[in-house]
């Protein structure tokens, strides 16, 4: 009986610590969990960034530098710096996502209050 309760606390403690660990990890884009980036990680991150860039472009919402940042990520990957490649690709991916949201949120023309 006593054992189960003790186990319960342990489980709770693990959930708590684990949960916090996850939260920090996700806010750092998992970088704190995994320091060694591989070529596959870079390839995947670059592909995801390019997909986000294209999606923004499909609604005329691509930003100026996103393609350039993806190019830099590709170069870093080629040079074997996969951590840098992933970091740059993630940055480009967020740009693509924000650019897409930016356009979708303005899908319907809203004339500003000063235009009257």
């Amino acid at each position: 009986m006593r054992k189960t309760k003790y186990l319960g606390i342990l489980v709770l403690a693990f959930i708590l610590v684990g949960g916090i660990g996850c939260a920090t990890a996700s806010s750092d884009k998992m970088s704190s969990m995994k320091t060694e980036m591989t070529a596959d990680d870079a390839t995947a991150a670059i592909a995801a960034a390019d997909a986000a860039r294209k999606k923004a472009g499909s609604v005329s919402g691509e930003w100026r530098d996103t393609g350039k940042i993806i190019g830099e990520a590709e170069e870093a990957a080629k040079a074997g710096d996969f951590a840098k490649a992933v970091k740059l690709a993630n940055k480009a991916k967020v740009q693509g996502e924000r650019g897409y949201e930016q356009m979708v949120s303005q899908e319907k023309l809203r004339l500003p209050s000063y235009f009257k």
């Binding site: 919402g61 930003w63 100026r64 530098d65 740009q95 924000r98 650019g99 930016q102 356009m103 303005q106 023309l109 809203r110 004339l111 500003p112 000063y114 235009f115």
Partner: peptide
Amino acid sequence: EMGKKFYFTKRGQLNFSCANCHLQ
């Protein structure tokens, strides 16, 4: 109307429409 929509749509990382600068 599409040209008009373009004119009033905020664009880019800095989020400006043409109207933000040349009208507002």
